[in-house]
Design a protein around this nucleic acid. Structure first.
Lengths: 199, 199
DNA sequence: CCTACCGATCGGTAGG
DNA sequence: CCTACCGATCGGTAGG
């Protein structure tokens, strides 16, 4: 449910193209990835892909749109819960890390290649992202107001949190000295104790 | 001295090309930026630029190399100081933020476009980056050993710090509600208090 | 520093 | 799903 890409053995040809594209877009960047390279990964000629997709841009659009939707769904769930601000924030961080480690290629593309979206979907994506940030900022603000959080500058705290989370896709490798749970515990610890009012 | 790009009124044509290129590379990405666009910003024909530079790749190489050098110089200074680990870490974070806000385009390009470097300079860049990370990790490790820092996972702490700093170039705008000093204070606060041993 | 131009490669289409 | 192919654009060179 919090998976960006579809699962199961029998995925459609279209899903396969999307997933191979996401991997290549992450690895080489959207502009530097050619349709011929994607086709090679899928195992067909470049021209044949156009029976399943409309354009290269459409691939990027779908990847970004699904990622945005996943984040919004997560935010909806947590925001409507009855947790206190600090616990909402904590839940969001955990959920964010979990989504990222599970869909690392897709998230990476949405985070780094969205500026190459064509105008209409670019606008939509930016709006979704801005709304997400506003809602997270509101949670931080509430936390400060009810004295659960230290009196940091809201937008600096916001971006410090998002930065720490967004960069997971850059350096996280599942086969490291720590697993996704360790990652979660450590990051939550560093961020939350830094934000928590000590006095 | 900690400036990546050269200052002064009378910069050479080459420096002008490099700086315009850095701005465009940050804005559109290296691959999506054309030599014709850079030329237009400089005010000449694309072909004319080749009297000042060798290739498009050379522009990226020089930008990345200068940024890497700046960071290494900064690390050398702080590492050889007689500060305690926690104060070294703090000094590094402050210096890092200062360098970033002063050379935002160049730093952004080095952080996001380095993978498009040609093989030889790619190797050099990666090595410089890895060494930098190792040295920073060593500072964190010392801080944990002498009980100045909490017992976090070193590499997770390392990347959480670097992430928070690297993303400044994405969202920092000098004309915001806070200036570079505010930014410094707030980030140092969030990160350090999260790392500092509370007991 | 410009005009003229080139080989390579790109995203995408026609037609089967 | 493939073969054949096209218009556009790219980084870069020749020659002045």
């Amino acid at each position: 449910m919090m998976e960006v890409k579809s699962k199961g053995q029998q995925v459609s040809r279209r899903e396969e193209i999307l997933d191979k594209a996401a991997r290549l877009f992450k690895q080489k960047g959207y502009v530097a990835t050619t349709m011929r390279e994607i086709a090679e990964q899928v195992g067909m000629e470049a021209a044949s892909m156009y029976n399943h997709i409309r354009s290269k841009e459409e691939l990027l659009e779908e990847i970004c749109a699904r990622v945005a939707e996943t984040y919004v769904n997560q935010m909806n769930e947590i925001e409507s819960s009855d947790l206190s601000p600090i616990h909402k924030l904590q839940a969001l961080i955990r959920s964010h890390i979990s989504i990222t480690t599970k869909n690392i290629h897709w998230i990476s593309v949405a985070n780094n290649e969205w500026r190459h979206l064509p105008e209409t979907s670019l606008k939509t994506f930016k709006k979704a992202r801005d709304t997400y940030e506003d809602r997270l900022a509101e949670i931080i603000r509430s936390g400060i107001d009810c004295q659960e959080l230290a009196e940091v500058h809201v937008s600096i705290a916001l971006y410090t949190i998002l930065s720490s989370l967004r960069w997971i896709e850059t350096w996280y490798k599942p086969n490291k000295a720590y697993n996704a749970k360790d990652l979660e515990e450590n990051i939550v610890n560093i961020l939350m104790n830094g934000l928590k009012k000590s006095g």
